[in-house]
Nucleic acid binder design. Structure first.
Lengths: 219, 219
DNA sequence: CCTTTTTCAGCACGAACGTTCGTGCTTGGA
DNA sequence: TCCAAGCACGAACGTTCGTGCTGAAAAAGG
């Protein structure tokens, strides 16, 4: 009683490619046949890894979450709590979007917009991921406030909302208009936003960040 | 040489319904067969109005643009240039999203995220609409600065980016988490943002706006 | 009234979709 | 060495997609 176990490496390769495709065409635009053809395997062979399209979609989300954690969250968590970590989180997110770790920009932006108005397990999973990201940013902001780097009247949820707004819009604008200036806009906005809420204890941290230069030379 | 002309009213009804569906499921999720069944007409009859799916998608975008202009832009243009108009533009946009004029939230948010990484005429049309909206907000900001209601060093494009970021993220968050608080967050952020750039001449305009109340009663 | 012209429903087509099935082939344990 | 578990494959399932074709009903012009 023995057979070959399904290769985990192959499975990961499938999911990494699936996440790439879904970041451009969405999780519905991701089709099993084209994914299989892309990877040079048979449709049914690939299908066997997951058993249903929905399961493939959910597994793809999990795989993308792993990439996201490795690219943004975990590195930012190595810097100590406070304003520095808040900035690191934002800056790494923008870099992750800008470097096109997924060719269609942020994977979660695409699939969130795709599923935010459709019921189902996929939507629930995406919503949970979004909530967790929100909480992470808000808690980093809360840390900074607790450390005295942000003023007492700073509301972490409100500030997190604003920071995330700048990041996601930079992603959207840069994709739609092929305009890298959006990332500079976002970094400027975030720095201004953090500076406006920073105490004297927090300001030195911000001052150590390289200022984002203005737009190109004026005629 | 005459037959019945294609009924414009029917065409508009088709497109209005198409925009509703596309705001939830996207312009690819919008299928001719389901749209026809929804409206109680035959697939080929409906098809005859447009001749191709891409043309239906483009016509749907045009129709949604009309709704958008009527709900947001034209009403806001009736108030005189300046900070008041800037606020009106933002507030009307948030209201348009919040009232679910399209059941899937802002039509353009959905289709922008759907097509921002795919080449084609649909993407180009969506991008053009986005650019125009951006320019409109930026020019309203520019007016306010020229009128002395915003400080001289206010960059219209930068401020427009930030305002639009708050609006779109409110739309996305409220849809994904079914959370109307996002709209209050956006209004707070916009008011703070405008206030930070306002001169003394501009501040009275902002003060006349009803302040957005804080979150519910604290225990 | 008849003719002309256009609309619209019905049907069929090929392609692609997700999914299932049966069949070898590979491989680990007896 | 041989068996049997289990994966990958090709083929085919039924459905839905977008798109043509055809014929009947209907409206406008003479």
């Amino acid at each position: 009683m023995a057979g070959r176990p399904r290769d985990e490496g192959t499975r990961n390769a499938i999911l990494r490619r699936a996440a790439d495709i879904a970041s451009k065409d969405g999780l519905e635009g991701l089709s099993i046949g084209r994914l299989a053809a892309d990877l040079g395997v048979s449709k049914s062979g690939l299908f066997g890894y997951f058993g249903s399209k929905e399961e493939l979609q959910l597994a793809t989300i999990r795989a993308a979450t792993g990439v996201y954690l490795g690219e943004v969250v975990h590195p930012a968590m190595t810097v100590p709590p406070g304003l520095g970590r808040v900035w690191e989180l934002c800056d790494r997110w923008l870099s992750y979007s800008e470097r096109r770790v997924f060719p269609g920009g942020c994977f979660f932006f695409t699939v969130t917009a795709e599923f935010d108005a459709r019921p189902g397990r996929v939507r629930d999973t995406v919503a949970a991921a979004g909530l967790e990201w929100n909480r992470l940013v808000a808690s980093a902001v809360g840390d900074a406030r607790r450390l005295g780097e942000l003023t007492e009247d700073t509301e972490p949820d409100q500030l997190a909302f604003e920071l995330i707004a700048f990041m996601e819009t930079a992603n959207a604008v840069s994709l739609l208009h092929d305009d890298p200036v959006a990332y500079r806009r976002a970094r400027n906005a975030i720095q201004r936003c953090l500076h406006a809420s920073a105490t004297d204890a927090g300001s030195p941290v911000l001052r150590r960040l390289q200022p984002v230069p203005e737009s190109g030379p004026r005629p």
